[in-house]
Write a protein that binds this DNA or RNA. Structure first.
Length: 580
RNA sequence: GCCCCCGUAGCUCAGGGGAUAGAGCAAUGGUUUCCUAAACCAUGUGCCACUGGUUCGAUUCCAGUCGGGGGUGCCA
């Protein structure tokens, strides 16, 4: 597809006045903007920056540039210090529709990545603890980033760095030995293990020696003690079963579940290497790397009892991944709380002499709170993800039944209502998670989570379903959506929609470059809003033979809007129902 | 104490040197003999936390202040 912004930038940059001012096409493209008010035009070039070099008022410069440009374009006008450009609407429509039709499900994708390998680590729950609403963030944001990068032509490796190691397992082992029961665990693994975990902390408050005992149990596990190892493996296996059910609901997959335990035998090498490179020093009986000079404090590598900490595991994991995958980028979708942790270990890897330290990227996100305070598995103040998903599905089912369209329309499909309720309800939860800047903290609110009006997943899905419905009817009427008279698409609503569709690939690219799925989510909302406005403003279907060319052009636009919305939703991991 | 992030409409949030600062929710009014009303249209609100600096121009960049959150050695 043509890049209109680049073309206009090139034309401006070719002008002698602009050349003399020292601006090349890339610099002009950087300055060129899209006016916030569409009435101003489609692209705008502000002339303020030329004022110094040309020693003239910006307004005068704008007039001069417009005069120089106008012989080969009719869509140029001057407003104040801006040169505004207007696209030729019919030709633009033909260009965009052809591109979407040709690229289909790959519209918005590109070869930017050139097949370079990128690791995305996400989700990474702690085994033996249930998924709460806080865990949805890494899971859903990470999966979206992975899909977006894959669409941009990177070879993506998805890693679930399971929290399947550490002192917490010492706690569980101690708890299980003190008051656990095998039957109870097997009946409901995560709920039971969580109960033990909570009970452990309650008892540890009375008897602090339990903490010591737990540390000892983990130290034994790390040494490879048979009994501890067996219990640990059992806990891991049982809880993984339950996680898989949630991932299935969300449609999320991984290429590797190599978690912390996977690196348990790869850490000796790291601590040896740190010592050999003179980075390790002893302090209060523990081994540390002193990063005070970089303003990063002191990083604890090895505890005084000889066991390691997660920073050592992260370094070992990074070294392993570089050797095993030879990544171009190694991306960690992990809460912003761990910012210092990442800055510390990435700095340590750099000090070890590995220049690829700079290819390790922490992609942080803000935390989820409840109205009555921080969520804590330990104290039981939690909202479970499964409950949220189920409630969203149930509410959706109620709406579907109330509306009745789906039950009548697709009664012969039988499970159509179940399927749609799942797609829409879960889609709503996922979509909302991807709607805001990931760095923002937020307070979980049931009413908001179950609101399906306005800028929400169901709103976007509804636009998609309506487009699908129009296209189904058109097919029944023997109308095509593959051609038509694009002069029918020069109305404001149609043109606004075309521009949003045209901008989708750029939104995908920016979302990938900034690891910020919300940029894509917002754009998909824009496309859906533009389609809704178009749908209301202009009647699409008509059986008038003299109107056929115009009707088919509108159908082509409807098909393109459906494709753009569908492609965007697919990258976000939200289903696109054909009916709702 | 020190470090990091955030502060924009009643609420939830976009925007991010430049043309009158935008959406959604909530509120009010309107739109269905017409392609799905989970929709569309209309109406109102802003010392863009504060103070200073850089700039032709700052809500946007820089410094400081205040407010909120997070982190800050034997959890992850």
């Amino acid at each position: 597809m043509r890049d209109y912004g680049q073309e206009i930038a090139a034309r401006i940059a070719a002008l002698p006045q602009v050349k003399d001012a020292g601006l090349d096409a890339a610099a002009v493209a950087e300055i060129l903007e899209v006016p916030q008010d569409a009435a101003m035009g489609d692209f705008a070039f502000p002339c303020f920056r030329l004022a110094k070099a040309m020693r003239k008022a910006p307004q005068a410069i704008a007039g001069e540039l417009a005069d120089a440009l106008s012989p080969d374009s009719c869509g140029v006008e001057v407003v104040g210090a801006y040169v505004n450009f207007r696209l030729e609407r019919g030709a633009f429509a033909a260009e965009v529709l052809a591109a979407v039709r040709e690229e289909g499900a790959a519209y918005g994708h590109s070869g930017l990545g050139g097949g370079r390998r990128v690791i995305v680590e996400y989700s990474s729950p702690n085994i033996a603890k249930p998924f709460h609403i806080g865990h949805i963030r890494s899971t859903v944001i990470g999966a979206a980033i992975a899909r977006i990068l894959a669409a941009l032509g990177y070879e993506v490796e998805r890693i679930n760095h399971l929290g399947d190691y550490g002192t917490q397992f010492g706690k569980l082992i101690v708890a299980y030995r003190r008051f656990g029961s095998k039957d109870e665990v097997e009946a409901a693994p995560i709920a039971t293990l969580l109960k033990y975990y909570v009970e452990f902390h309650k008892q540890a408050e009375q008897d602090p020696s339990l903490e010591e005992e737990a540390r000892a149990a983990f130290a034994a596990l790390e040494r490879g003690a048979e009994a501890e190892r067996e219990l640990w493996a059992w806990f891991r296996e049982e809880s993984l079963k339950e996680f898989t059910a949630v991932y299935d609901m969300l449609g999320i997959t991984f290429d590797s579940y190599a978690g912390e335990s996977f690196y348990s035998d790869k850490m000796r090498r790291i601590t040896d290497e740190l010592a050999a490179k003179g980075l390790l020093t002893e302090s209060e009986g523990a081994q540390i790397v002193d990063l005070d000079d970089c303003g990063l404090g002191k990083a604890l590598i090895k505890k005084s009892d000889g066991s390691t900490l997660y920073i050592t595991r992260d370094i070992a994991a990074a070294v392993y991944r570089k050797e095993h995958y030879d990544f171009h980028k190694n991306i960690y979708v992990v809460a912003s709380q761990q910012d210092l942790h990442f800055r510390q270990w990435i700095k340590i890897v750099e000090l070890m002499g590995y220049d690829w330290a700079h290819d390790c990227v922490h992609v942080p996100f803000g935390l989820v709170r409840l109205a009555d305070g921080a969520m804590s598995t330990r104290t039981g103040n939690v909202v479970f993800l499964l409950d949220v998903l189920n409630q969203a599905v149930e509410k959706t089912r109620a709406i579907i039944v109330e509306k009745g369209v789906l039950t009548d329309d697709a009664a012969e499909d039988g499970p159509a209502v179940d399927e749609a309720a799942a797609e829409i309800g879960i889609g709503a939860v996922v979509f909302q998670e991807l709607h805001n800047n990931r760095i923002k903290d937020y307070v979980f609110d049931w009413d908001k989570a179950l609101n399906f009006d306005g800028e929400t997943g169901p709103y976007v899905q509804y636009g998609y379903a309506r487009a699908a419905s129009v296209l189904r009817k058109a097919e029944g009427m023997g109308l095509s959506c593959n051609n038509g008279d694009t002069a029918a698409l020069t109305g404001d609503a149609a043109f606004a929609l075309l521009k949003k569709i045209y901008e989708l690939p750029q939104a995908v690219r920016e979302a990938g470059e900034k690891y910020e799925p919300s940029l894509l989510t917002r754009h998909v909302v824009d496309v859906a809003q533009a389609f809704s406005a178009f749908y209301h403003e202009e009647r699409i279907l008509s059986d008038d033979p003299t109107e056929r060319g115009r009707t088919e052009a509108k159908l082509a636009l409807t098909a393109a809007a459906k494709q753009a919305i569908g492609n965007g939703l697919a990258l976000l991991g939200v289903a696109a129902p054909e009916r709702m």
